[in-house]
Nucleic acid binder design. Structure first.
Lengths: 176, 176
DNA sequence: GCTTGCCTTCGAGCGCGCTCGAAGACCTAG
DNA sequence: CTAGGTCTTCGAGCGCGCTCGAAGGCAAGC
């Protein structure tokens, strides 16, 4: 359901605030396995997290990272791919605990794929719910901005009645 | 900007999963100031938080609540209105710290309205950013579901090449 | 009178996700 | 040879937002 429009949606999202289509083409043109092994600093920069966080993820069992002769971490393509996945899931609000569960399933082998799929399906629904919540909160915030006023209670503003009505409606929606 | 379509959007959101328009009409019909003073348990149920949380908000200086003869909290319409605002803002991700700042401005008087408006405008942008992030994460998750595979790294799946390309595209989008 | 139950205050504790600091190994440039 | 920088491990600490527990007050019902 709604899968083959992924690209169009990603591109649409890109189109929102500028014209970074160059990057997209670059990404598309980049051969899949080109990436060289990275140091922790490079990986951190690439993933936009701190080296501390990468060590934390490793300690948490989310990713295995090999060492070079000096004992320094080496992030190869596989590790980076997994970390891209992990950081994206974190960004979308999946708890570290769930990610631990997920990667344990991945490491357990192919027969766990149905369970992994379930996790993703549930997570998808969670994201959708969150987007709906935020969309409503956004509407409420924009309404508040428009009628500004700015009362949160005691001080009744001039347009009190419609404001309260809208609040109640949004309240109903929120508690769905 | 984009303010007068609040109602239509709220209603559209409602229309998504059923036919709860009865509640909307109910909410619209409900006279603004009808609500009776509540106990902490009633207020908590109404706001869908725990009594503990309400006491915490009060301790944090977010809302003033009077007491009855027995020393029990009495949530009047003003307090409830403020708490509706507070819980909605919390739900939309505004930190308690920012809410403390905001209510201190409200309590400081009308001349702080411009600053309050600034806070709301910034928060609106924050929500918008978050929605964009989540929309992308949703697309990525749906893509992963569609191509399932479920690899996060080491085990290369059959459709590896397009998967990686999509990952990289979304990666570019994410780091905008 | 006594139990039940909801309330009060206060301070402490917790789960999450990092984030930091100390102490030391190693490589490279000057 | 030395200084600087980046890395290592380990454990502790922190900011947030609750969440809980202990000890007790008060009102209603049996």
């Amino acid at each position: 359901m709604a899968t083959d429009d992924l690209m169009s949606r990603a591109l649409a999202a890109l189109g929102d605030d500028g014209a970074p289509s160059v990057e997209v083409i670059q990404a598309l043109a980049d051969p899949a396995g080109t990436s060289e092994p990275m140091t922790i600093a490079e990986a951190a920069a690439h993933l936009d997290v701190s080296p501390h966080t990468l060590r934390y993820y490793e300690r948490a069992g989310l990713v295995a990272v090999s060492r070079d002769a000096a004992g320094h971490r080496v992030y190869d393509a596989d590790a980076v791919r997994r970390l891209v996945f992990l950081t994206r899931m974190r960004l979308s609000g999946m708890p570290v605990r769930d990610l631990q569960h997920y990667v344990s399933l991945v490491d357990a082998g192919k027969q766990t794929e149905p369970e992994r799929l379930d996790i993703l399906l549930e997570h998808r629904d969670t994201i959708r719910r969150r987007i709906r919540e935020l969309t409503l909160s956004l509407a409420a915030t924009e309404y508040k901005i428009a009628t500004y006023g700015g009362s949160t209670g005691p001080d009744v503003d001039s347009a009190a009645a419609p404001n309260v009505v809208a609040d109640d409606v949004l309240d109903q929606v929120h508690r769905r």
